[in-house]
Design a protein around this nucleic acid. Sequence first.
DNA 1: ACACGTTACGGCAACCGTAAGGATT
DNA 2: AATCCTTACGGTTGCCGTAACGTGT
Lengths: 288, 288
Amino acid sequence: MLNLSQIEAFIAVVDTRGFHDAATRLGCSQPKVSQQLRKLERALGVTLIHRDRLQSMPTEQGVRLIPLARSLLRTAARAKDVVSGHKIVIGASSNIGTYLLPPYVARFSRMRGNAVDLDMRIAGNPEIADAVESREVDLALMEWWDNRRGFVAKRWHQEKMLVIVSPDHPWAKRRSVDRDQLFEQPMIGGEAGTGTSALLRQVFGKSALKIRVGMNVGSTEAVKAAVKAGLGISLVFASAVEEEIRSGLLCGLSVAGFKISKDLFVVFPEDLPADAAAHQFVRMLVKG
Amino acid sequence: MLNLSQIEAFIAVVDTRGFHDAATRLGCSQPKVSQQLRKLERALGVTLIHRDRLQSMPTEQGVRLIPLARSLLRTAARAKDVVSGHKIVIGASSNIGTYLLPPYVARFSRMRGNAVDLDMRIAGNPEIADAVESREVDLALMEWWDNRRGFVAKRWHQEKMLVIVSPDHPWAKRRSVDRDQLFEQPMIGGEAGTGTSALLRQVFGKSALKIRVGMNVGSTEAVKAAVKAGLGISLVFASAVEEEIRSGLLCGLSVAGFKISKDLFVVFPEDLPADAAAHQFVRMLVKG
DNA sequence: ACACGTTACGGCAACCGTAAGGATT
DNA sequence: AATCCTTACGGTTGCCGTAACGTGT
């Protein structure tokens, strides 16, 4: 049977790129790290770390192990909180976690006082999907969910999406833009795996295929910066640009004749007990 | 640091509702289970199992731990497959892959949860032979194997072969046909390289040479369609025509005085590790 | 008395830190 | 020589199976 302290040693070596530093971080002797690694490698039947004088690097197989290893450690670390039931971890995709979640968390904390210790994990939508599946988080607020077995997904919010342009853009003074005009402009893409292209197909049908994504900058903050700099236009959460639109740093437009909004889901395990704190959070979301 | 074998013991007790049965399942002594549980409970600072004379049940905290514990075990079990990077790929000749394999795959998936990523490759018998030799597939289910070096072939199934005719055929009402009558009719041939002609020689000896193959249509689905259309008779897997015979679309006959059945083999590399997921699949096939 | 879990004990393997060894620059 | 990992060694720990011991039916 695999041993978590071996996994911990492996991750320490990966992070510090050295056995000695890994030992320091773990607070143990360096030969112990060597031994743990060797055992793990024998158990798995592969070399995980390429030892090098300058820096020890994971092998190809080691790289494949890393995400699984981190997941194991995070899940194991949660065991204490889970049995106590007093601490819950909420996962959220970047956009949701950044622009929508904070007020809910504040409200929940006020409701429950400090009876419940609340933690958030914000990451990309695909990472959060894995995190809820492996129980690293108790529930997840997501932009897109792929119906994995054993989980419930409920729609809890419908977020309006806005086309944004810089104040120098020809459309800056307009309130809306025609579909065909929109398609002519290349768009700046944000976070991957959030289902935005699926949403566009849903709204515009086949003609959505005409949309060109000129750049993909990975995060909404980066999208906003790129649009402000006049690099192009984009489509983002209304909540994400509320501030900039009010202060005139960005201009938000709708698409004439279309209502573009994204359904947001809360996802949790089917077997989440109804009296768990996490379940109360879900009810708060879905009701109000 | 949490220990996975403690978690394993916990889950075993939860599943079997008893320390003794848990020990049996884990293949260890019962006091060991007690000890593991006590350690886990001390580590988490709570009682996880309510010991009872009749059945041991998880406490409220224990219940909360269950999903996380199962997740940990599943993830840990995946480690080996993940580093290997090889999801299991099962090769199968068309007939086997189409008519026999699916229930086995379903059963294996249930056994192993989603811990193993299973893929199938269905192609002609010769193609599958090459695929297993070049390690494109981890194991192959075949109708015929030419004893290439470095591989093990085990018989895992004996499939009954039926003569099939259309419901309009003079033999339609009969349950069996004489050998000599069979030889008079030209047969429709199916997939090449499946060893059917060798099988016929084995069953009928030299007289099998009298068999004439009037058409060769390449696949069993095509054979069935041709026979239904009254183009001739054929000899196919009983499993392949079960449905049609039940519904009267085809009639199946045996050959009087002969038992025609084809041995099916599972083929895999000699050096396939005994603990590889693919090897477990082989064991499942050969045992049950 | 029986069924089931806990406690006690002892042998043995595994762990882990110190110290020495190797390899590479 | 210096650095970094591996190997060697020995004391200690703790694991685990057998056996004895509660405890409730």
